[in-house]
């Protein structure tokens, strides 16, 4: 669905934000991109939506080279939930806010109406249909921006630091939404440094450092690689750390490697 072929991108200030990135994401995959601030995560996302075009190499989204398409065309396929909802909410009512993209994409009146109703119900925002998006709480705004995106049914959904400023309850709802989306076969990219949030989702993890991809694999493998995470300044999930501490001690209660996941899941439910 998404393919980066040896992509390099240098910002105006001379910082090499992407340095020979090659990456393939298949349809229906859930991929988390982790790394410290400035590692190139956001630049990577902007290449998928065509907001930035590669300086060398190419980015292919659903068979289309991003250099041959406008952001408007690409965004029909790729929806991005940006970090700060206040950077996009502008309409007088929640309903109009949701219709904005749908109208831009040329959907008919009744399709727009149906999709808006569907989205508002999905995220429990029906009561706000006629109110201003600016009166919503932080969590509600975040859900509204998600509803806006899902309304036009893009094949790829990107979450840019979804947990920033969100409390435990809101995070749980977000994780639920991501899980729900995976079951509908969407391709999902989550850019986040909230490791504790990512761990239960068990995505494929791509580790970035200084504009390069330095690690790529299933959560259980990447999250156990202390050396890799340390060099990229990414934290380790507490449960994985705990699991490794147990395994390191010869006299600790024996834990079968296959038990790790079950053990960790039980720990999560407790």
């Amino acid at each position: 669905m998404i393919e980066f072929r040896d992509v390099t991108f240098v910002h105006q200030n001379g910082v090499k934000a992407l340095d020979g990135v090659s990456l393939k994401v298949g349809t229906g995959e859930v991929v988390a991109v982790v790394g410290e601030n400035g590692a190139g995560k956001t630049t990577l996302v902007k290449h998928v939506t065509g907001l930035l075009k590669p300086e060398s190499g190419s980015v292919i989204v659903d068979g289309v080279d991003t250099r041959d398409a406008s952001t408007a065309q690409l965004s029909r396929k790729v929806g991005v939930a940006f970090q700060n909802p206040d950077h996009q909410l502008f309409s007088e009512t929640v309903e109009e806010e949701m219709s904005f993209a749908l109208k831009n994409f040329g959907f008919s009146e009744d399709v727009v109406h149906n999709r808006v109703t569907w989205g508002l119900e999905l995220f429990g925002l029906e009561e706000y249909r006629k109110s201003s998006p600016l009166v919503l709480s932080g969590g509600e705004k975040k859900r509204l921006t998600l509803a806006c995106i899902l309304a036009w049914d893009p094949q790829v959904v990107i979450f840019d630091e979804p947990t920033v400023g969100q409390d435990a309850i809101q995070k749980e709802k977000l994780a639920g939404t991501i899980q729900m989306l995976t079951s509908t076969g969407k391709t999902i990219l989550v850019v986040s440094h909230d490791i504790e949030f990512l761990w239960p989702i068990q995505p494929r993890v791509v580790v970035m450092k200084g504009g390069r991809v330095v690690g790529d694999g299933p959560s259980t493998d990447i999250m156990q690689d202390r050396e890799l995470l340390g060099s990229a300044r990414v934290a380790q999930p507490q449960l994985v750390e705990l699991y490794q501490e147990f395994r390191r001690r010869p006299r600790a209660p024996f834990i079968h490697p296959l038990d790790a996941k079950r053990w960790v899941e039980e720990g999560l439910r407790a």
Partner: peptide, 14 residues
């Protein structure tokens, strides 16, 4: 009360 108990604490509690 909407407070996330850290994972290690949950295991410690167990």
């Amino acid at each position: 009360h909407g407070v996330a108990v850290p994972a290690v604490t949950r295991v410690q509690k167990m």
